[in-house]
């Protein structure tokens, strides 16, 4: 058999456009890989059962929880994390700005995951209803905001892009 199981592997993972080649243990979760091996500490974790969504990233265009995936499974993947959200000149993206304007973050711990969930939602549904927004961020727990201003931030950005007639980046 050409393929044998191994306890560690060499992986190439592209995060926010940069490709990282690393040896990683098979038991390492993607979230730990991002935080510990790549020092991308903007991706957080707040539980150990895949409920809180703080570790949410986009992998190969799909919104996922990085604590529910092994780092070895990300071999060859394209990953987007919070560190890649801002504009190239460092200014806030419209989504980040909408979160700030609506006071959609307090402690800011769940915020990276929530912004990625929002980005994914708006990419797939640029004009969501309130119900669709709430469904879209259901996998992300926030204990500070009661979700009210997060929903508003997403509504605001959807309304803005509708006005401008462009899709959310």
């Amino acid at each position: 058999m050409s393929n044998t199981p191994s306890v560690s592997r060499s992986v190439a993972v592209t995060v926010n456009g940069t490709t990282y080649q690393r040896d990683v243990a098979a038991r390492t979760l993607l979230v730990h890989f991002l935080r510990e091996n790549l020092n991308l500490t903007g991706t957080h974790f707040g539980c150990d059962t895949g409920h809180c969504g703080s570790c949410t990233v986009i992998a190969n265009g799909k919104l996922i929880k990085s604590c529910m995936m092994l780092a070895v499974q990300a071999d060859g993947a394209q990953i987007e994390t919070v560190e890649g959200l801002a504009e190239p000149d460092g200014s806030l993206s419209p989504l980040q700005q909408a979160f700030s304007d609506a006071h959609a973050l307090q402690c800011g711990f769940c915020t990276p995951g929530l912004m990625l969930a929002s980005k994914y939602l708006l990419e797939h549904n640029p004009n969501p209803t309130e119900e669709e927004i709430r469904r879209g961020i259901k996998g992300n727990l926030c204990r500070c905001t009661g979700y009210v201003n997060i929903v508003r931030a997403i509504q605001n950005i959807a309304a803005d892009s509708a006005e401008k007639g462009d899709l959310v980046k």
Binding site: M1, N3, T4, P5, S6, V7, R9, A26, R27
Partner: peptide, 25 residues
């Protein structure tokens, strides 16, 4: 959050997957 040491393999076909399952109890 801290898994036991584990081996990992990514088969290329369902036949290979079944073969692996049968090789590693």
């Amino acid at each position: 959050m801290l898994l036991k040491e584990i081996s990992y393999v990514r088969p290329h076909s369902i036949d290979e997957a079944v073969a692996l399952l049968n090789s590693y109890p």
